[in-house]
Amino acid sequence: MSDEAKRLAVRKTYKLYVGGKFPRSESGRSYQVTGSDGAVLANASRASRKDVRDAVVAARKAQPGWAGATAYLRGQILYRVAEMLEGRRAQFADEVRTAEGGTRKAAEAAVDAAVDRWVWYAGWADKIPQVLGGGNPVAGPYFNLSSPEPTGVVGVLAPQDSSLLGLVSVIAPAIATGNTTVVVAASERPLPAVTLGEVLATSDLPGGVVNLLTGHVAELAPHLASHADVNGVDLTGVDDDELARSLEVAAAGNLKRVLRRAENDWTAEPGIKRLRAWTEIKTVWHPAAG
């Protein structure tokens, strides 16, 4: 036994997920990620302003195709993602536990809830138009139809506390309705997000629909909030009041939709608030026959 060389484990490089690919940060920077016990887990890429720029380009490129896909197809693809999530259950449970601490059982419960949440939103993909849209009675010989349309490219600052369930709860509703996203993962707990990127890359989700960046929120968020080619920004993951306020001001520059921070209980059923947040109602008048 002593003659045999001990096997060296292959260590994983944690990269970004942009446009369906896994690049390192263009800046070449990385930062140390520690577990809840303070032990060093890995070096994650520290995304820069230019990574935000590239991610927005990728998201914009993917936008027409994703918004143009039928709601049914989007739903099917999201189900497929849920299948892949389920297949990596053990890995996610490990990562969530090292990131957030707590018991193995709690971590597994969080992963299960995340998969269920994804399936829940997958089901909504082709049902939300019936809830938010429909035929409107008008005083004239017209059909008047309203339907929810995707907002476009949405910048998502993912929650800092819940590294997988929270992340899934902010991404899934945005893409279910046909938006594409640039997501800044939880700064201190980015590893489940990187693994989620691997799941998304191996499901049928087109590249660029979800772009995942790891790094510091305070550094990346202002560029996302002020970017004129981003149509909405979700401030859930901003813990600092002053920063949140400046982001809202920056977002007003091109009249972005802003989803403000709120207390979120990620385990509770979310309702359609987040689905509604990233849609615009389009109403069409059409002459009735006769």
């Binding site: 720029r53 927005v56 914009r60 002020s226 970017h227 004129a228 080619d229 981003v230 920056a250 091109n254």
Partner: peptide, 14 residues
Amino acid sequence: RQKLTTGHYSGPDY
């Protein structure tokens, strides 16, 4: 050019 003047990224809408 807009990026240099305004300090934030522009987009094809502009």
